[in-house]
Simulated scan of single mutants.
Amino acid sequence: MSTERAANQVAERLSALDELLRERDGLLTVMDRVVALQGTARLIRVEVGADSGFVADLEAPDQAVVRWMSGTRTDQLQNLVVPVGQGIGGRVLAQGRAVRVSDYIGSPAITHHFDAQVRHEGIGAMLAVPVVGRSGRTIAIAYAAMRNATSFGDFAVGKMHDVAEQASTALRIADAAEACKADAVAAERQRVQSALHDSVGALLFLIGVQVRDLHQSVQDNPTLVDRLRRLESDVSAASAALRESLLVMTDTTPERALPVEIAEYARSFEARTGVPARFVQLATVAPLDAERTALLVAVVREGLLNVEKHGNPQSVIVSLGPSDDGGVHLVVADDSSTEVTGSPSSGLGVRTLAERAVRLGGHVSLVRDEDGGCTLRCWLPG
């Protein structure tokens, strides 16, 4: 008895497993657009009893392309372009309702642009119905075909409408699944982007800080100064490569990404120092070329570096906006209440930025406020 019970339990579990596998296959079918439409072509033959079934997907409001087939003998219909009004599918596209002919080649009810393909395939009777989306518009065309001349009755038309409704549901689910997958990919890309920015970006920033500190202390050693300059150049190149990689991951251009990158620098500064840092975009800035964009990013980086090295602020504000004269104005300001060490306007980084700005027709300045805070300003012509 125990052996029989065990055998029954195994049989029940196998049956449950088979059911789960069938449900999985059904779910996969409707979660993939291609599989869903290929399945529709096969389902037409089963439900209608047709010799062949095929489905055309819309590539434009006035044009469909036959892509999925079942039971066909040749590839004559594969990738066949069906404009609105042409053939039986084009008529469905024009009228938005079922169209049926008992003898395709001899029918006066349709145009005969595709007689050659139909004749090669050996099709006699044909029935086509629209697959209608949630918006009420045709999103695909489902066809049933017989090899001999015959009539598709109302029962067959009803079955085709049922198949088309199932196809519409499957396409909605497939599109939703694709959107969810795209959202998941975007979220993962954003996670990796943030991780790279916070780890590699922060490391390059700290290396740059240390190199610049060494510059100030080894001015009397030309050999070491030269090596530090090369190292600084390498760090700058690595930072630029990282920025380009992050921009690729966001699928955007350097010009469009400028506010995003500035905001990221402010966020990274706040996470690293604990000092609140806010980015304010005063108004939309007209697109800038890569050189101007790179300079503005460098100004933000230098401004935050000066605050971190010399200041003791309660907060930092970075603002970006257009100027009245058609240019662009960037400001990095802090509210340090203690005296900064050294003269910030004489730093190598600020002088280098000022020289780059002059070459572009702009200017960079760093001034100390009466309360001890610093304001780094950059203006560039449009």
Rank of each mutant, 00 (worst) to 15 (best):
residue 338 T to Y: 10
residue 21 L to G: 04
residue 214 L to G: 06
residue 25 D to L: 13
residue 292 R to K: 09
residue 296 L to V: 00
residue 330 L to A: 00
residue 254 P to Q: 08
residue 193 Q to M: 09
residue 235 V to G: 02
residue 67 R to K: 09
residue 113 H to G: 07
residue 366 L to R: 04
residue 208 G to P: 10
residue 257 A to E: 09
residue 188 E to K: 06
residue 230 R to I: 15
residue 137 R to K: 13
residue 230 R to D: 15
residue 356 R to Q: 14
residue 108 P to L: 05
residue 197 H to T: 10
residue 117 Q to Y: 11
residue 360 L to K: 11
residue 240 A to Q: 15
residue 364 V to S: 01
residue 144 A to F: 01
residue 353 L to F: 05
residue 153 G to I: 09
residue 109 A to S: 04
residue 300 V to D: 01
residue 304 L to F: 03
residue 149 A to C: 07
residue 241 A to D: 07
residue 226 D to K: 13
residue 96 G to L: 14
residue 223 T to N: 14
residue 301 R to W: 02
residue 116 A to I: 11
residue 365 S to G: 02
residue 229 R to L: 15
residue 323 S to I: 00
residue 282 L to F: 00
residue 51 D to M: 08
residue 96 G to W: 05
residue 21 L to A: 07
residue 68 W to Q: 14
residue 202 A to F: 12
residue 332 V to K: 02
residue 236 S to W: 08
residue 295 L to G: 12
residue 95 Q to G: 05
residue 365 S to K: 04
residue 358 V to F: 09
residue 360 L to D: 09
residue 256 R to A: 06
residue 382 G to R: 07
residue 207 I to Y: 07
residue 213 D to F: 06
residue 109 A to E: 06
residue 238 A to K: 01
residue 168 S to R: 05
residue 12 E to S: 07
residue 327 G to L: 00
residue 218 V to S: 03
residue 265 Y to Q: 01
residue 131 V to I: 08
residue 42 R to D: 13
residue 272 R to I: 08
residue 261 E to G: 03
residue 235 V to I: 14
residue 311 G to P: 11
residue 137 R to E: 10
residue 9 Q to G: 10
residue 202 A to L: 13
residue 55 V to I: 03
residue 153 G to T: 14
residue 50 A to L: 00
residue 181 K to G: 12
residue 71 G to S: 01
residue 14 L to D: 13
residue 166 Q to R: 01
residue 288 L to C: 03
residue 280 V to K: 00
residue 51 D to R: 00
residue 208 G to A: 07
residue 9 Q to L: 10
residue 20 L to C: 02
residue 299 V to L: 10
residue 70 S to H: 09
residue 66 V to F: 10
residue 31 M to R: 09
residue 69 M to W: 05
residue 284 T to D: 00
residue 303 G to W: 07
residue 246 L to F: 11
residue 115 D to R: 01
residue 238 A to M: 15
residue 37 L to A: 03
residue 153 G to R: 14
residue 270 E to I: 01
residue 370 E to W: 07
residue 172 R to L: 13
